[in-house]
Simulated scan of single mutants.
Amino acid sequence: MAEYGTIRDVAGSAAANIDAGLRAHMNKVYGTMSVGMFITFLAAWAISGLAVTTDPSQAAAQMPNGKLLTSLGVALYASPLKWVVMFAPLAFVFGLSAAINKMSAATAQTVFYIFATVMGVSISSIFLVFTGYSIIQIFLVTSIAFAGLSLWGYTTQKDISGWGSFLIMGVIGLVVASIVNIWLASPAIMFAVSAIGVLIFAGLTAYDTQRIKTEYVAHAHHGDTEWLGKAAIMGALSLYLNFINMFMMLLSLFGNRE
């Protein structure tokens, strides 16, 4: 009986350590993601401020909604450079995913923050197209929805790992449809992509949260702090992308334009 009690105490202590480690791991994931979000929106706001002017003598072009663009604004939104700005975040995601095993956790975190800055430049046009109140309103709605979905993914006892392949195929379909619609410019396709995209990234938010939790529990016994550090960065990247995409699609659906 004494031996059984000792084994039970050891098992209980190990479980408690894993629970404490999991909380710290998830805090790091959400903390890194939150810093990335702050950097993104700060960069987007700053760049949009440099891209627009109220002085006609400094204007290089005028948008259909009447906003005057500086030479920087023209370069970012009306020149071939816009394609680089548009697809740069996608290239960063693929590059970070491919090179993460060769990086240290600190380097991966720095690259993630650089990526967040590039994403901010890429989405900076929202401050030229949508009203500031609308952007804040949709951001708050997205935050509430994201928090609820992530909490459900973390606490549910249901195994939703089977959602992964279906959701990833959905994301690929969205990317293809979005690229095709760059040339078609169809409002119907844009509406469909945004509506379906909200559902897909909502599902990915819950799925990725559970995946991050499951991966930590599976590797916690090995004590590989370097791997866990990089796993936290990649987890933050996954949730960050889900949030940004859900926000942009909700803004496209319900945002008030200038």
Rank of each mutant, 00 (worst) to 15 (best):
I39L: 04
T54V: 11
A51F: 07
L68H: 05
P56K: 10
A44Y: 02
G49E: 09
A60S: 15
T54R: 07
W45M: 04
A43S: 06
A44M: 02
A60N: 10
F41V: 00
W45C: 01
F41R: 00
F38N: 01
G36A: 03
F41D: 00
T40C: 06
A59Y: 08
I47M: 11
T54I: 09
A46T: 07
I47H: 06
L68E: 07
N65A: 04
T53V: 07
W45N: 03
D55H: 09
A46N: 03
G66D: 12
L42D: 00
G66K: 13
V52T: 14
T54P: 03
S57Q: 11
S57Y: 07
M63N: 12
T40M: 07
T53D: 03
M63D: 13
F41K: 00
G49L: 08
P56Q: 09
Q58P: 06
N65K: 05
M37K: 00
Q62T: 15
A51P: 03
S57M: 09
D55R: 11
A61N: 13
D55G: 08
L68G: 07
G49K: 10
L42K: 00
G66E: 13
A61R: 10
M37Y: 03
L68K: 06
P56C: 09
D55P: 07
L68W: 08
P64R: 14
I47D: 04
G66H: 12
S48T: 06
A43Q: 01
A51H: 05
L42E: 00
S48G: 11
G66T: 13
Q62E: 15
Q62M: 15
P56F: 08
I39A: 00
Q62L: 12
V52W: 08
I39G: 01
L42H: 00
D55L: 11
V52N: 10
K67E: 15
T40Y: 02
F41H: 00
A43G: 01
I39W: 00
Q58T: 13
G66C: 14
T40K: 02
A46R: 03
D55M: 07
P56N: 08
A44E: 02
Q62G: 10
I47K: 06
P64Y: 14
A60F: 10
P56A: 09
A51S: 12
